[in-house]
Amino acid sequence: MPSETPQAEVGPTGCPHRSGPHSAKGSLEKGSPEDKEAKEPLWIRPDAPSRCTWQLGRPASESPHHHTAPAKSPKILPDILKKIGDTPMVRINKIGKKFGLKCELLAKCEFFNAGGSVKDRISLRMIEDAERDGTLKPGDTIIEPTSGNTGIGLALAAAVRGYRCIIVMPEKMSSEKVDVLRALGAEIVRTPTNARFDSPESHVGVAWRLKNEIPNSHILDQYRNASNPLAHYDTTADEILQQCDGKLDMLVASVGTGGTITGIARKLKEKCPGCRIIGVDPEGSILAEPEELNQTEQTTYEVEGIGYDFIPTVLDRTVVDKWFKSNDEEAFTFARMLIAQEGLLCGGSAGSTVAVAVKAAQELQEGQRCVVILPDSVRNYMTKFLSDRWMLQKGFLKEEDLTEKKPWWWHLRVQELGLSAPLTVLPTITCGHTIEILREKGFDQAPVVDEAGVILGMVTLGNMLSSLLAGKVQPSDQVGKVIYKQFKQIRLTDTLGRLSHILEMDHFALVV
């Protein structure tokens, strides 16, 4: 994948999101292997301009796509893939009243899908469409860049269908997702969380590099694949309309690839034109409109599966009536509230959605109805927002919020430890010299600072030695090549209790 991002070429006709291997024109390309080798690009942008032909009021008969309808489940399912879809609609009884809503608040519980998330729908649909058009064949390999849930859905379907599955996901995604993927037989590649989507090191860039190296491999490409919004247009939206008897006044959905909100909203605009569509985008993402909503100094966020630093091709923002931004604290607070007060075992993005819903639905009156999409299960986040310690460490809970008995030293300040200034190293000294210094002084790690004293990161003896043994660096290389740029900081005025929580999850903390 090139470091400079080429513009994806656009073909003359058809839909841009065809499933299957992508040609340089962004659509299915038939021909000899030699032709494909000559024409197939190194990668295709996940934010390529959409060429979708959908228009409100256009006859369904003019759609270029294969459409399906929700099917009634048999008493005995032939395999677990038949437990994807037909998820329950559940009334939220307490939270709406707590925040003064007059309307009825309903939750579409997508964590009841077989793999635990709304992404099971698009995973199965992308595979079925690729099999139907002859792209996927027995023994082929599926590769997908994902925040985890699409990966789980694909790995689940691949396990049943017999495909090899490789999932490329950023490091910030939970260990629970990784464990589930491994249990399903998927191979996992992790990428830096802070890598831009168009960087060769991003999950998108690495996935395309693997595709170019592995024979008979395919990126189904949830960011561009029409099967993504079509899955929701054909099934999720129809289920909502049936469950609500066609009567709903507002739908609120958090947005990642945009397939969920695009597919549902398009069908609702056709069948229930008075329904307002509300999009939820986390602070630090750029999906919301108008652009002024996205202006923030924050560039990272903890909530998973929603928000991006690019506009995915499948996201149709014209069908969203209003956007709201959400933050991590309210997302996790509301997710825990949904679990504790409503018994809905949902993930953090569901918290984002409901946090926005109780604001947006203030305009609705008694007798009206708001539906929220709860995308995934708490299963993926047992060591994250479900953990009091994690919430404390991230600053989303305060010590006084917890009532468990603490040891005698818990409320003492870090400054009472009488710490001395640490050994520091410059980023320009060599790895070999740094190892000598650390061994001589008896230290395992040291902060790396520039000549102005600005902290650049941390270097550890173990990481340097393993990097040297693996051949990633040489003793003569500058130590700046092996620094940890993500590390926890703590102030002298913070409590030892807070430091204790940090050290339970990290090997060190830097006192500043």
Rank of each mutant, 00 (worst) to 15 (best):
V255H: 01
S254G: 05
N113D: 05
H17M: 07
I44F: 12
N216Q: 08
L268G: 01
T191S: 01
P12D: 05
W43H: 10
K39P: 15
A159S: 01
P46W: 05
L105C: 06
P145F: 05
S3I: 01
Q222L: 01
K137V: 01
N212S: 12
N113L: 06
Q222Y: 01
H17G: 14
G139N: 06
I122Q: 01
R121V: 04
L28H: 14
Q222S: 05
V160G: 12
G115V: 06
G263T: 04
S50R: 01
I166C: 06
M169W: 07
M173V: 05
E239V: 04
E131Y: 08
R51C: 01
V10G: 11
A237L: 01
G148R: 01
I95Y: 05
K75S: 12
A130R: 08
T257Y: 01
E131A: 10
L101S: 01
E104L: 05
E4C: 12
L136I: 08
A48Y: 07
I122P: 01
R209S: 09
W208F: 07
E62N: 14
K271W: 06
K267Q: 14
T68A: 12
T262H: 10
K82T: 01
L136H: 01
V160D: 03
L81S: 12
P78R: 01
K102P: 04
I127A: 10
H65F: 01
S27L: 09
D35L: 05
Q7P: 12
T141M: 11
V160W: 07
I261A: 10
P145R: 01
T262G: 07
L241S: 04
I214A: 06
K72T: 05
P2Q: 10
M173T: 07
T13P: 07
A253W: 01
P273R: 08
R196V: 04
I261L: 07
I219V: 08
S61M: 03
G139I: 01
R209M: 08
A155L: 07
K72R: 10
L210E: 01
F111Q: 04
H17Y: 14
I264A: 04
I95A: 05
R58P: 10
P170A: 01
L105W: 01
S27Y: 07
K25S: 09
Q7A: 09
V10C: 15
C275V: 14
E131S: 12
N149E: 03
I44E: 15
S254R: 06
A24L: 11
A114Q: 11
N225H: 04
R132F: 08
L230K: 12
S61H: 01
H22I: 06
P145M: 05
G85H: 10
K36I: 15
E37A: 06
S63P: 10
S174T: 05
K82N: 13
A195C: 13
A60C: 08
I219Y: 06
L251R: 01
P59G: 06
K36W: 06
A158T: 12
S19A: 11
V10K: 14
L181K: 04
S63R: 07
G246T: 15
N212E: 11
G246S: 08
I261M: 12
R18E: 09
Q222P: 08
P33I: 01
I95F: 10
R182P: 05
I264H: 07
R18T: 15
K39R: 14
L77V: 11
T150N: 01
M250R: 04
A265L: 04
T87K: 10
C15V: 07
R132S: 15
K172D: 01
L101W: 06
K94I: 01
S217N: 13
R125W: 10
V160Q: 14
H203D: 05
V189W: 08
E144Y: 04
S3H: 08
W43L: 12
T257A: 08
P16W: 01
S227W: 03
R91H: 07
S202M: 01
P33T: 07
K137A: 07
Q242C: 14
E104I: 01
A38T: 13
S175N: 09
Y233V: 01
D129P: 01
H22R: 11
I95C: 08
Q55N: 13
I122L: 06
T150L: 06
